[in-house]
């Protein structure tokens, strides 16, 4: 993977410091909002692995987010009351299995067919939950109690506590980010970035590229499931719309808004989109028109996303400094 430059590292550390410090002073409303941003960021980073690093444009990524969320609902809802130790791995395994199925069918194709297949197969899962009486159909599911993390009889984490949940999510965000950096630097990452650039060449070098694409698809899907699991635990509410294709479209917007193939771009994109969705409705009831226009403008004028601005921003002050020093 491309090296994360020094200014970006510094920026990320400052952002992490801010995130660690914020709950001690910030308004509850904004703590809530930051949790929301972090969950979206995990979801978007998982999609970045697929779209930005493997070159697979999926329009069905929300299916895994939704399945992760339903996993919590099913294993920690009214029907069952397993501990989070059981609910989390079971949810992630379910998501991974769904990703194997969707991935196995879709990666046999490419280009437009891949986009359409991921979309249609995700819709299949959407309709499954939409029409299932067992899991509340289109009304969705409620989770009455927040999960807590116990070790034996000792309560380690009470996720019902907003601040605990905040740090729990922040921890997962950092772990997911570092995990993705690690696998992108590992041999696996070399292969998928090669596939993204020129799959035919990678195959002629001796790699069975389909396997690597599928592995990337499953990892991305499972991490999306993790984000969905957190979302369900956070809101206590799950609806089929979590799996819907609007959710898939939105998360693609987040990734591209922030900057594709950067990992930190999706975090910036998550901040931008959640803030927009929070503040725009205050201005106009028909804020989605404004949001649509903003996306159009990003595609037209900033095709590499907000993070591509950073280069420009850092360059301008250094230019000014140089001129001053020379003067």
């Amino acid at each position: 993977m491309q090296k994360i430059t020094k200014p970006v590292q510094l920026f990320l550390l400052i952002a992490l410091g801010f995130a660690l410090w914020f709950p001690s002073v910030g308004d509850e409303f904004y703590v809530e909002l930051l949790i929301n941003i972090m969950i979206i960021a995990i979801f978007a980073m998982s999609l970045d692995l697929l779209v930005g690093y493997t070159g697979l444009v999926s329009l069905g990524h929300a299916a895994f987010f939704g399945i992760g969320a339903y996993g919590l609902g099913i294993f920690f809802g009214e029907m069952n009351q397993y501990s989070i130790w059981a609910a989390l791995p079971v949810s992630l395994i379910l998501t991974a299995l769904a990703a194997v199925v969707i991935g196995w069918i879709s990666i046999r194709t490419s280009g437009i067919y891949f986009i359409m297949l991921t979309l249609a197969l995700a819709q299949m899962f959407y309709y499954y939950f939409f029409e299932s009486k067992l899991y509340g159909g289109d009304d969705g599911m409620f989770i009455s109690t927040k999960p807590d993390v116990n070790f034996g009889s000792i309560q380690l984490l009470d996720l019902g506590n907003e601040h605990t949940f905040y740090y729990f999510t922040l921890g997962i965000l950092v772990v997911v980010f570092l995990f993705l950096v690690m696998i992108l630097r590992a041999p696996f990452g070399q292969v998928i970035t090669g596939i993204c650039a020129n799959e035919q060449r990678v195959r002629s070098l001796g790699y069975a590229t389909q396997r690597y694409k599928l592995a990337s698809f499953v990892i991305a899907g499972t991490l999306a499931g993790l984000a969905g699991f957190l979302e369900a635990a956070h809101t206590g509410f799950i609806t089929p719309s979590y799996l819907g294709w609007h959710e898939s479209g939105n998360i693609l917007v987040v990734v591209i808004l922030g900057g594709l193939g950067t990992l930190y771009g999706p975090i910036i994109g998550a901040v931008a989109l959640v803030l927009l969705e929070d503040f725009l409705p205050d201005i106009t009831e028909h804020w989605k028109i404004v949001l649509g226009m903003i996306i159009v403008c990003v595609v037209l004028f900033l095709p590499n996303g907000i993070s591509s601005l950073s280069g420009k921003i850092f360059r301008i002050p250094s230019q000014i400094m140089k001129t001053i020093l020379r003067g």
Binding site: A186, F188, G194, R201, L205, G206, A215
Partner: peptide, 29 residues
């Protein structure tokens, strides 16, 4: 070739193909 890879990375990805598998996630390549 891979224009966005460095010269060494281009040969690297070629050389790495002789590993039994590149499904390695943990160690830096």
């Amino acid at each position: 070739i891979f224009p966005k890879f460095t010269c060494l990375q281009n040969c690297w990805i070629a050389s790495q193909s002789r590993l039994k598998t590149s499904m390695k996630f943990f160690k830096s390549a």
